[in-house]
Design a binder for these strands. Structure first.
Lengths: 362, 362
DNA sequence: CTGTTAGCGCGTTCAC
DNA sequence: GTGAACGCGCTAACAG
């Protein structure tokens, strides 16, 4: 028993396929009686339009693709959540494609999307926009979020990683820290490199000596980095981690070693993933409103798709910059309450900081 | 400048479209010279097959759909991660559709997938399988993960929520707890109801009085539930939360109130989301290997699709049951180390517990 | 207002 | 081995 097609419906309703199409799409006038007969037949046959076929003739798929390097951790899931929310309001489907570590895989993924999506959002922290453009199929609208340099002339959204890193370091310095170590992200990752560069610059500007420990954005690497530092007899009084996940790993390693945070070592992360406010001490970080950024990315993509359709409206090729906002929590607080368990002094301060960012804590 | 079609390639290579197709799909023999000419033309025109059109003639989309109620929190993102991993190994695309709170929305989402996917995985904790089946388009292979009763005759994977809840309560009782409260999930959610039922039954079996506090699976609801309990002068010595997210909220509320965990109140959650081992005290919970479950779901769906194609192989309509495993961490440990910060006594015990579950901690 | 017909881009029989 | 023709399911012109 195969699924009914539009012809089956037409036959049963004693009308032409065109009329069925008109009733279903809403376009074109149809007389009430025929309309009723069509709807009746549709119900009787449990007919559902074949969106694939429809796409072929309208050349619109009502689907957008999202290619991203990974799906692990809260960052990407939050991003996708924001995109999904926006997609729903536009009546679009979302097709995700992840785990593309290298350029070739990403290219293949992008190519395989042709004829399947109306546009795509590409996150590829390993590639620069130029390389990526080469592998793009046809003139499909694409919004880049590759964290590279502000690549002029190509629609994109990038996070100000450099500026965020500088702000994080300055915050630690303001809190009294002098020997600030940085746990960096994976080599080759543009976001990680920009954050490290910001750290190095801010340290130099303050006349402090930079110290970078390797990491790869994973929690275990943050944990390992701190253990290595401690084993070497580190005297650091602060740590700026390349992302929150590593910062959490660092926090745990400090706890295990009996090092107090923030009294002995202050810690600041990057991203403000949901966990950040749940760990103890709560994690100070550079907030990126992740879900909101995802929503914004999808909205812009929709505009690009419209621009392509209408020809009239110009495509918005701007490189939008998301500026992270410092969220000072307990892990970098100068005078944390003695007993964080029983007090919510910290929380009050956190709330004010956060509400300024238009977000609600806990 | 429009994208090239198979005809453009054929023209440039001086061959028929059929030959181009043969070269690209690999099916059918082609002489080497023509083969070269085709590949050359493909490269010259940067031709990429239109997967939408291909789908229409092969009636395979190489895409599977996942409809789920929400995308918030770590549970669903972990699940999707597992599915995405499996999808990649099968060369399939994943199209996600979320935020379907009620039956109608879910049905619409399911319907809109016809002609777009080869099969789908449906998570709909608000619907029973029977209702859902009604809204299914044609005979599309569907794997259910709706948490309902083991609905015979329909391929599905369900978590043994009832059994898990019983095990959680028994664990708390074994630890000395007698007045165990339960923070339940949203009404109408089948998973939540099964967990509550398990709790009630286990309490009754032990001759203890059950006490249920409302929650909705959100962290804030867990937080609010504990605050309410405390305000009423609760004497509970343990809390079994309907999921980890609420358990974390509960943990924070206890801390804020100066109530020690697990000394004064032990807490056990459900799911074992990644955060569970990051909070302090680390959260005891009923582990579901989420990503693995997602992978398994996709693998089974692939089998169903194959079975539909081959006619020969029978469809596996079994209702697979995932049994949660108790992971005892600090939040329910009878004799936690006095200073969790400086010691890793706890971690040792945790590790052993977890490794028995075939997983690695931290 | 309605029915007929021509594509959308591709895979795939069939004859050659 | 190769090419011409048909069909996948639907929308959109075009006649009637």
């Amino acid at each position: 028993m195969k699924a009914a097609t539009i012809r089956d419906v037409a036959a049963r309703a004693q009308v032409s396929v065109a009329s069925v199409s008109r009733v279903l799409t809403g376009a074109g006038a149809v007389t009430e009686p025929t309309r009723q007969r069509v709807l009746e037949a549709v119900a009787a046959l449990a007919y559902v339009p074949h969106s694939g076929a429809r796409s072929l003739s309208t050349s619109r798929t009502d689907t957008v693709g999202v290619v991203l390097p990974d799906l692990f951790g809260e960052f990407f899931s939050e991003l996708i959540r924001g995109m999904d929310l926006a997609a729903r309001t536009h009546g679009l489907h979302l097709i995700v494609s992840s785990s593309h570590d290298d350029a070739d895989e990403a290219s293949a993924a992008i190519r395989s999307m042709r004829g399947r999506v109306d546009g795509m959002i590409v996150l590829s922290p390993h590639l620069d926009a130029a390389n990526l453009a080469a592998s793009l199929a046809g003139s499909l609208p694409v919004l880049l979020m590759n964290g590279g340099a502000t690549d002029a002339g190509r629609p994109s959204i990038v996070v100000d990683n450099h500026g965020g890193a500088v702000a994080a370091v300055e915050h630690l310095i303001a809190g009294g820290a002098r020997d600030i170590a940085h746990i960096c992200g994976p080599t080759g990752n543009l976001e990680a490199e920009a954050r490290m560069a910001g750290y190095v610059q801010a340290m130099a500007a303050a006349g402090l000596k930079a110290r970078v420990v390797d990491g790869d954005f994973s929690q275990s690497s943050g944990h390992a980095a701190v253990r290595a530092m401690l084993a070497e007899g580190s005297h650091s009084d602060a740590i700026f981690a390349g992302n929150d996940v590593m910062a959490v790993g660092a926090l745990l390693a400090l706890q295990e070693a009996g090092v107090r945070c923030p009294e002995d070592v202050a810690v600041v992360g990057f991203d403000d993933v949901p966990i950040a406010q749940l760990v103890r001490p709560s994690l100070s970080t550079m907030r990126i409103n992740i879900a909101e950024t995802g929503r914004r990315a999808l909205d812009r993509l929709v505009d690009l798709i419209r621009a392509k359709d209408d020809e009239a409206l110009p495509a918005d090729v701007a490189c939008e910059i998301v500026r992270p906002v410092l969220v000072a929590r307990d892990s970098s607080r100068a005078n944390p309450s003695i007993n964080t368990q029983a007090s919510d002094d910290g929380r009050t301060a956190v709330k004010s900081t956060i509400s300024s960012g238009g977000h609600q804590d806990v």
